[in-house]
Design a protein around this nucleic acid. Structure first.
Lengths: 148, 148
DNA sequence: TGAAAACCAAACGTCAACGTAAGGGTTTGT
DNA sequence: ACAAACCCTTACGTTGACGTTTGGTTTTCA
């Protein structure tokens, strides 16, 4: 039996507000959360892991909730595949599933790659400016050295 | 005499709307644009270059306009330094300016580095999942090969 | 030179992603 | 067993980053 977390506990752990947790459930980013008989939400570790992934996509990639939903849809498909595999299925179907899963993950990685490339291009621009100024400073130091 | 661009021309060139150009001026992301006697805006290349940088920050780094303003403030300081250097100034002040410029640019680069690192960590997570699935697929292929 | 096309400022509209407040149940510690 | 702390739903509010509309002015070019 996995431990169950209250909204506030999860919010504290993830550094977000309870409103955000409610909202993400409301818009379907996470499936309906388990409840106590009285109606209070109980979050399990799987849901928390999903939330962590959502927050990474939000904060690291800067994705909108729509884009995040697309990624999570992929996750759900993968999860479905895993379930099918567990349930046992004919070998060819099995391979199809694995290959499709690979494809899905590769597109995600490709997106990240693209983002990294653009970032590195930007960094390069700044580095070049930096190099020019450093060069200027070095030349200047030499002049001062010799001049005095 | 530099060529002057109309709002629509700039918008077309940059792939944004005229509203966005007006808005960026309104909130001070770009300085007040030159006008014709009749009051129509005329953008010069320097302003367009600044706009391009703003858009890169927005689209590549996913910065909010507030964050962008911070970066542009740095740019303005650097610009001020350049102006001072052109105007001629004592050698020690000159070196101070150059060193400060370097510092500013380095913090920007550091920010980008941090972003890249986080992205690469995410990529790594996905790659590992990918590797696990590929391994499973390979094993499965072998089984099918031998089994038949 | 005159009409179509472009431009202006001002102001209200919109959408995402939550924030906040109200009114009332539920859990928990003592 | 009871108050404090926590949680619920509902619903309206807010902020950023523009979109859209209006009513009038300026440019352009045939």
């Amino acid at each position: 039996m996995g431990k169950a977390w209250s909204v506030e506990a999860v919010a504290g752990r993830l550094g977000i507000t309870t409103r955000t947790l409610h909202y993400y459930e409301e818009v379907g980013l996470i499936p309906p959360v388990q409840r106590t008989p009285g109606g209070h939400r109980m979050y399990d570790e799987a849901t928390i892991a999903r939330l962590e992934q959502i927050l990474r996509l939000r904060d690291v990639l800067g994705y909108t909730l729509q884009e995040i939903r697309q990624v999570m849809d992929v996750e759900d498909v993968l999860q479905g595949y895993r379930a099918q595999l567990e349930a046992g299925v004919e070998p060819e179907v099995r391979m199809d599933i694995l290959e499709h899963s690979i494809q899905l993950l590769e597109t995600v990685v490709a997106h990240i790659d693209e983002k990294v490339e653009r970032l590195e291009a930007m960094r390069q621009r700044y580095r070049e400016r930096l190099a020019r100024i450093e060069e200027k400073l070095a030349k200047h130091r030499k002049e001062v050295d010799e001049g005095e």
